[in-house]
Write a protein that binds this DNA or RNA. Structure first.
Lengths: 217, 217, 217, 217
DNA sequence: CATGAATGAGAGTTCATTCAT
DNA sequence: TATGAATGAACTCTCATTCAT
């Protein structure tokens, strides 16, 4: 059978993401994936050197562009205002995740399982993430007297970024709209901006924080 | 080898909870469990009619007392003030989950996977949960003009209850303390109370909501 | 199905030896072995931790008693005449191999293939073999002026010992009888004795070497 | 990529011989061969109709010239002295094998494995071999009273011819030199001549047999 | 001729489960 | 109750082979 070049590989990844999301990595067999992608199971080993290789491809496809957002904005710290970089980074990360909801959800859930497998690749990505977030936050805080330790801000930020895709149900209802809806990102981003300004001191274009609070609960 | 009556069964469940939490249901083999519990794998089938039976035992051990909290407080609605019942229910649920952190975390994570298996038992529990939450909220709202649809409040509440065990990292850092710390529950409960009063209109012993907001972010 | 204790394991090893001999290690599948032994393929992994484990069991079953012959006679060097020890060692090795012809043939053929697998276990056994042979020969040579380097004698001896099982066809026809026939060992042993005396100088009960030579060719 | 005509095919055969020798037929994959020969795996099927076809090509490349030696010398029986033909045949066979050591060793080892595959081609070659050897020996023996049955002489001769390549280690040490050394063939051939004369009665240009014997052991 | 994609058969292995003891 | 042996199903992966280009 003749297929378009590259089609098979893409079909496998797409099917894998959908099934890993729905049934978990361990709960998905390569035959599931093969039949979903309408290809021969052997192709999975052919293209990805096995099921774990496919998992790693998925992780890479998530983390590479995800980290690119953070890296690029970290790179702009020298010529742009730090809080602008941080805000742009946040926005880009939110957009990226919202464009890859299944993948985002699957990745954040799966790495909470002590899977033995792919441990190295995951921890290397998480290290990079932490590095960029730290730099961005540190630069934003530069001239501030820090009310919080940086480490705490990093983890807060990370939690906020993951939240809509890990607890989408919760967030979507709390916010009256979900990550899938058109203006969600704008709204969520606005909320984060206010949180950010609450500690960065840089409140140029922000409404009073009370309005967020009452929105929030 | 002779063991105390019931000891074997308990050892199995304990080992299962720890391993299901760490490695996921699919990622845990009954031999893992057996060797962790220092018993023979055949005993698992003997006592629980198989691995799935053991999973269901875990689910039951989580949901039965969990739902009991809600059911009992729902039952008190006739003789006590509705918002008091709701607050007590919330507190008991938080305490229970905090006493069974691994189990709570495992259950809420696992049911997000479309496991096919145990689907019936899970959805029956979730139906009950929804029923009790609805009744408690509805009673609290009784004489209020509802600003929100009830369904939204239910899901919000549910999200709030699960949060500390699903995203413990996030919550613990945002709150400056985690579900494992002694006063966490009190603090978290206080926050929820304020959220609750923000829509129930019953603000007898509550500080203004702004203070929560500024606490929060 | 109920079977005698230990029967299954033995049946597997027996079937494995026969099939490894006939079809080679790579050419034999565990399903071949299982059906030959009339057991379930999973038992092979159960008892031997996989096909390679079964191979190693076969190697162990060959090398352990084989080396025991050499080790014991090496141990007797202190209280007995060296050439007697060496001759007894040779005789015992011949008898042992002749009692396990398939195994012997399979082992000597298989280790000539660069199998990657089981490399460590094999080379450790061969090292021991060389050690014992060296000691036995060295002791026999002690008071002789050595016409040959020891290493050459070791390899000659080893070749002679392997020969009847590696090239049984050849030997059996040259000798007018094969390793399977009752008096073969005696005759072969006599030949070796003469070869041995040709360099050890100890010719007490030996016919002149020419008679062997004309027998041989 | 353009390659010289025939180059690909030759590269495949060369790689195959080296790998079959080192890892056995079953232990070698066509991808091993392809990457060793730096060609595409599909070419192997293209040129040889599959892995087994490649094996058969190797067998042919060994047996055809091998048998040609025997056939040609058998053909000369009518116009030349029988024992001269036999000796020349032996010499040519030895030279040929020594020029194709890997192939020789691989072939003689592999046909001792009941490979099912290529059984027909192998046994047809072995039949021819036996036919030529029988004729050569029979002619040499013609005017002799046979002390041995012919069949025994055939098998003895065959064993002698195979020996240096099957048990090269053994032979090389016993003889003080191996099949790879320049004068080995001469020496080995001399030895065979003496063996031959010991039963053919034709001892014109031979040293006394004792000298061989004392050389040998 | 040469190639990369694709396939089906079958290999080794794991696993939950059963059963006689 | 508790256990070790044994099983069948299913999984991942490898491999020789085919085919369109």
């Amino acid at each position: 059978m003749t297929t378009q070049k590259g089609t098979t590989k893409e079909a496998i990844v797409e099917a894998a993401i959908a099934l890993f999301y729905a049934k978990g990595y361990k709960g998905t067999t390569i035959r599931d994936i093969a039949s979903e992608a309408k290809i021969n199971p052997a192709n999975i080993s052919y293209y990805f050197k096995g099921k774990q290789g496919l998992l790693e491809e998925c992780l890479i496809r998530f983390f590479e562009p995800y980290l690119a957002c953070l890296e690029e904005e970290t790179g702009k710290l020298e010529k742009d205002q730090a809080d602008h970089c941080l805000k742009r980074a946040i926005k880009r990360v939110l957009v990226f995740q919202s464009e890859h909801k299944l993948l985002a959800r699957f990745v954040w859930r799966e790495i909470s399982i002590d899977s033995q497998t792919s441990r190295e690749i995951i921890s290397s990505y998480l290290m990079k993430e932490r590095f960029f977030l730290k730099n961005l936050i540190q630069a934003t805080l530069k001239e501030q007297k820090m009310a919080f330790p940086i480490s705490m801000l990093i983890i807060q930020l990370k939690g906020i970024l993951m939240m809509p895709y890990v607890n989408s149900l919760y967030v979507s209802e709390v916010w009256g709209m979900g990550p899938h809806e058109p203006y969600f990102i704008d709204k969520y981003h606005l909320m984060i901006s206010k949180w950010l300004e609450s500690w960065s001191g840089n409140q140029t274009f922000v409404k009073p924080i009370e309005s967020v609070a009452s929105n929030h609960y």
